[in-house]
Amino acid sequence: MSLSIGRRTLAALLAAPALARAQTAGPIRLGTLTPLTGAGGPYGPVMAACVKGVIDQVNAAGGVLGRQIQLFSEDDQTNPEAGVRAARKLIDVDRVAAIMGTWASSVTTAVAPLCWENRVFLATVSGADSITLLPHNGWLIRTQPNTTLQGRKFGEFAVEQGGKRIFVMMPQTPFTQSQFAAMKTAAERAGSTAELLIYDATKPSLRTEVDQAMRSRPDVIVAGGYTPDTSVLLRDLYRASFRGKILSFAYSVNQAMLGAIPKEVTEGVMTLAPSPAEGSGAYAKVQRLVNNQSPDPYTCQIYDQVNLILMAMAKGGDATGQIVRDNVRLVSQGSGEAVDNALDGLRAIAAGRAVNYDGASGPCDFNEVGDIIDVKFRYEQVRDGTLVLMKIA
Score class of each variant (00 low, 15 high):
A338P: 12
G317F: 08
V339G: 04
A277G: 01
T299S: 11
L289P: 02
V324N: 06
L330S: 14
I309K: 07
V286L: 01
D326V: 00
P297M: 10
V306I: 15
G279L: 01
A319D: 14
D344A: 14
R347P: 05
Q301C: 06
L346H: 04
R329S: 04
C300F: 05
A277E: 10
V331G: 08
I309P: 08
L330Q: 14
S332G: 14
D318R: 11
V286R: 01
A282M: 09
T299N: 03
S332I: 05
I309A: 15
D340E: 14
A338K: 12
Y298G: 01
G316T: 11
P297S: 11
N292G: 00
Q301E: 14
Q322W: 08
D344I: 02
V290A: 01
L308V: 13
L346P: 00
R329K: 15
D296M: 03
D344W: 01
I302R: 05
A314G: 12
V331D: 10
V290L: 02
N307C: 10
L343G: 09
A282L: 10
G334T: 06
G281Y: 00
L346T: 02
V331H: 07
Q333W: 05
Q293N: 13
D296K: 00
G345T: 01
Y303T: 03
N341V: 01
G334C: 11
V339C: 04
V324I: 15
Y303A: 03
M311C: 09
D344F: 04
Y283F: 15
M311G: 03
A342I: 00
Q305F: 07
P295D: 00
A338H: 13
N307S: 07
V339S: 07
R288S: 11
D340P: 03
S275L: 02
A312S: 14
G321W: 09
D304E: 05
T320F: 09
I309D: 12
L346G: 02
P276F: 05
G279F: 00
V286M: 01
M313L: 10
G336A: 07
C300N: 14
L330M: 12
Y298P: 01
D304V: 02
S332Y: 07
I323E: 11
V331E: 10
